[in-house]
Design a protein around this nucleic acid. Structure first.
Lengths: 341, 341
DNA sequence: ATTAGAGATGCAAACGTTTGCATAAAAAAT
DNA sequence: ATTTTTTATGCAAACGTTTGCATCTCTAAT
């Protein structure tokens, strides 16, 4: 029952025109008369002609599609970024093909190899956690395939990057605690092997320094993955201290939520005794009680910007060398977890 | 600086062989001698040959890629499904191209049109909330493109479907409340225009009937989108009743979480006074306190199954007509919100 | 020594579209 | 009436791979 597909040639034969005329007519080429265009389009509609985009890609060397490499799709941050990418791409008639590196360098390299074979006009990637050197990405440049990194970006090599200012955001978050009257401020830090979390710790410290507050090393707790359970551990470590901090800036929302829950059970009032700030504006931040003050990392917008930059570079005729870094402006969202008196 | 890509012909010229031999050698065709294969592969590696997959697709009419249509990528359920699809597809050397319908029928139709043009070997879709009739999907069958629906599936047309048994799951959840000693059981229902939520309501009622418990209509609250805020409204409506239910089965986790929070503020003990069961096993269900008993809808597995079924149909030579419905087994996850005495 | 068969490679066409160039027909300028 | 310009269409090649069939060489069987 699978009827053979209609091709340009079929239309051509049917209308006693050449395939080139059909092609141009459907493409609104100015050299084709209006009457012919109308005729061709009507016939195409009637016969149910669907252009073979693979043949077109083959001929033109353009696929109108972009490849995305993310650690995992089901992490909310990345799903938001992808959503932003898809949205912008769709408006510009690109489609997106997605790969998960699973935070595994080996798999990332495999994917990079797969993507070399002309399947995509450009690539957007967030590095796997294991990735330290980015040599495998360099092939794209040689092949003339534009490449944009977001969030976890390479440091060892010049590239297009879409990032947020982690240092500044952490600085703002910490200053907010200070402005709320906190004097003894702690931090739950992510892996210092990841630049992002390093920057957040540094921003935190810089704010303390600026306001002449002491940096107390036992108020700075380190974690591996900023997981929910690690947050519980941190909370208990805080509770064992001779004196609790009166404000804590967490490098993500999960650990912040853990703090809130453990502290509440220990009958510690939030924000009166301890004010808490998270990072990322996960959905849970506006559900947990008290609602969590946090930094909106603008993931969707990050996706949009990545797609925008990439598509601009794909379509840019003049092949000027270019590697831009765009920093997305984050915002502090103040909620109950820091609203004191 | 963009060096021209190496093609089969380049390799052929370089080795004084024909392009066909090169092609077959790289493909491990049995007719090619081992020595030649070794030679060719070595040369290919050395010159950095990357096969042009577009040309290959063009020739063979196979793209080794599958299209996915989801309402939104950033809904956790869908991101999990996509993750499952990508995982299975990757193992089988397929890649996935994603489109968001944004729950908009018009956009869904546009996407369907885009996907007709030979870009994909098969399609996996979850219907937009607006979609009532699925005629626009029928073209795929005519074109010989396999199609699998998941979660929100068409009822007006025979197709491959991956679903969970919503009726049975709701039944199980309700029976669990009954087994926990609840006698006056309520329900927060989703839009009855959506089959899924209709089935959950029916499963709920069936369990009551089976155990000779009364179906009290003022214990059944209806919502539009099962949103968090709607959950709050429902919670307050329950509180206004002359007598509270002693167990509530919610058609999703968001509304269940709202119940927990509002009830807690009203000093109602969960699960002692009211036991609560959700649906979907969202991440928040194991964070909210008390942790929420819920139905694990096995989203990742749903994705895997969809991909598995689709790829089987793509690669099935014998063109036997086929429309399978696979029901994924859900599981009840019991947590504190129903653990009474 | 001849033939049959296996083994290895090459030839050439095909997939459907796009595009530079040529050409035909019609209109405008001489 | 002839030449020039404009307008509309067609020709044919090209993109890189795959694949049925033909060809060639060499070994094995007669």
């Amino acid at each position: 029952m699978k009827n053979r597909r209609i091709t340009l040639k079929d239309l051509a034969k049917d209308l006693n025109l050449s395939a080139s005329t059909i092609s141009r007519a459907l493409d609104n080429h100015p050299a084709i008369s209006e009457s012919t265009k109308k005729l061709v389009k009507k016939k195409a509609e009637k016969l149910g002609f669907i252009p073979n985009s693979i043949a077109s890609s083959f001929r033109t060397n353009k696929t109108k599609s972009i490849g995305i490499i993310v650690p995992r799709i089901d992490i909310h941050f990345h799903s938001l970024v992808i959503s932003g990418i898809e949205d912008y791409a769709y408006k510009n008639e690109y489609n997106v093909t997605i790969f998960q590196s699973k935070d595994c360098l080996k798999r990332e390299k495999e994917i990079v190899k797969i993507l070399q074979n002309r399947m995509v006009d450009g690539v957007i990637a967030c590095l796997s956690i294991e990735t330290k050197k980015c040599d495998h990405f360099k092939k794209f440049e040689k092949l003339g395939v534009p490449l944009v990194f977001y969030d976890r970006v390479p440091t060892d090599f010049d590239a297009n990057k879409i990032i947020i200012n982690d240092f500044e955001s952490a600085f703002t978050a910490t200053e907010h605690l200070i402005a709320s009257g906190c004097k003894r401020i702690g931090h739950i830090a992510g892996s210092q092997k990841t630049n992002i979390f390093k920057a957040r710790l540094e921003g935190f410290k810089a704010a303390l320094v600026k306001h002449n507050l002491p940096i107390q090393e036992d108020f700075i707790l380190h974690t591996k993955n900023l997981g929910y359970e690690e947050g519980v551990t941190c909370a208990n470590r805080f509770l064992e201290l001779p004196e609790l901090p009166d404000g804590i800036f967490c490098a993500n929302d999960y650990t912040a939520v853990s703090l809130i829950q453990v502290f509440r059970k220990a009958d510690i009032k939030i924000p009166q005794q301890v004010a808490i700030v998270g990072f990322s504006n996960y959905p849970i931040s506006k559900i947990i009680e008290p609602h969590l003050t946090t930094i909106n990392d603008c993931a969707f917008q990050m996706g949009e910007s990545s797609a925008k930059l990439l598509i601009r570079q794909i379509e840019d005729k003049d092949d000027s060398v270019n590697s831009e870094t765009i920093t997305i402006r984050t915002e502090l969202i103040v909620r109950e977890s820091t609203k004191r008196a």
